[in-house]
């Protein structure tokens, strides 16, 4: 009893300055609420966040748009000349968009094409692999926690480390060739200089690196499905495939949607691990959009920040569309749930 009283006294003592401060702050806040109403108060409290968002998101976006309307190689805006939409025109000057070599900026359209195919194939395979892994990990396996950790571990790695690990495995004198030679006396193959294998490698490596996160999301969705539905299906003698199509998949749809959209956005932004693994080669077969922007803006012998900014604005538009798609589908699902 005595100790409770002592601690409550101590609490009151510690809170005293806070309370005093609150009383001081309360006076202008009451005044503000009277003059601006509840809406004004919401704006007041949101202002710090909006300020940070404005400085770190909107301002750079605005600056990027301005850059995309300027030309030259200088980085300071004051040293750059206004060229209007010239950078966009340059990106879109093309005889046939399906043949990058007919375009003025052939590297841009090659990167767009590569990114498109990468997104289509990687996202489809990512969903499939993550779903299968989640279904397996949802079963009563021996050492289930260990396996979950194993699949999640690559997510914790830096993309550069991921790229280096796979480079050491896939290079001519790498681990894969060593194993193939030891097992089957197979002549070492240059996986990273073959156009087709390299493209496949970038897809495989990115799936390996990111599937852990998506598996975890799907696993959470699987565990949220009520067990009694499965018990009822079992009592009815429903076949496992039918259970999957009629119970698991429909109830997993909201999680799948999140995974699809997240995977799509991540795939469009692919850069780090591929840059380390292949450098965009052989030729330009694994040159993706983010690398094109990086090289145009920063790495080439004579940089063109304006062109890089224009390309990044276009890429940003694609990401906006994908995000709106996510929001739209998310709301649709929500409304379905309410009905």
């Amino acid at each position: 009893m005595t100790s409770t009283t002592t601690s409550s006294h101590l609490g009151a003592l510690l809170m005293a300055p806070v309370n005093a401060l609150m009383r001081v702050v309360d006076i202008p806040l009451r005044g503000l609420q009277k003059s601006t109403g509840i809406g004004g108060m919401a704006a007041f409290f949101l202002a710090p966040n909006m300020l940070i968002f404005g400085i770190f998101v909107l301002l750079p976006l605005f600056i990027n748009i301005v850059y995309s309307t300027t030309g030259g190689t200088a980085f300071f805006l004051s040293e750059r000349s206004f060229v209007g939409t010239e950078q966009y025109q340059r990106l879109f000057t093309c005889t046939n968009y399906l043949d990058p070599m007919s375009c003025q900026e052939d590297a841009f359209w090659t990167a767009v094409g590569n990114t498109f195919w990468f997104v289509v194939l990687q996202v489809a395979l990512m969903i499939l692999v993550s779903l299968v892994t989640a279904l397996i990990l949802n079963r009563d396996l021996i050492g289930r926690s260990f396996w979950r950790a194993v699949f999640f571990f690559p997510v914790l790695l830096s993309p550069v480390v991921v790229g280096l690990i796979w480079k050491w495995i896939l290079q001519r004198q790498g681990l894969l060739n060593f194993i193939l030679y030891e097992i089957g006396n197979v002549t070492p193959y240059t996986w990273l200089t073959d156009r087709n294998w390299t493209f496949i490698a970038t897809i495989g490596v990115s799936i390996w690196a990111h599937m852990g996160l998506y598996t975890l999301i799907l696993l959470a969705g699987l565990q949220a499905i009520p067990k009694d539905l499965y018990e009822a299906a079992e009592m009815d003698g429903t076949k496992p495939a039918r259970v999957f199509w009629r119970i698991t998949l429909p109830l997993l749809a909201p999680n799948l949607l999140v995974v699809v959209v997240l995977a799509l956005i991540k795939a469009v932004q692919i850069f780090d691990e591929v840059y380390v693994l292949t450098g965009g080669g052989p030729g330009t077969s694994t040159l993706y959009l983010t690398q094109y922007i990086y090289e145009t803006g920063f790495a080439s012998a004579l940089r063109n920040p304006g062109l890089a900014a224009a390309a990044s604005i276009l890429m940003g538009l694609v990401l906006v569309v994908l995000t709106l798609m996510q929001l739209g589908l998310g709301r649709k699902n929500e409304n379905k749930g309410k009905r």
Binding site: L192, T278, G279, G280, G281, L287
Partner: peptide
Amino acid sequence: KDVWVSAAGST
């Protein structure tokens, strides 16, 4: 050709 095709651009 390994070295020459192992990257894109002027790397």
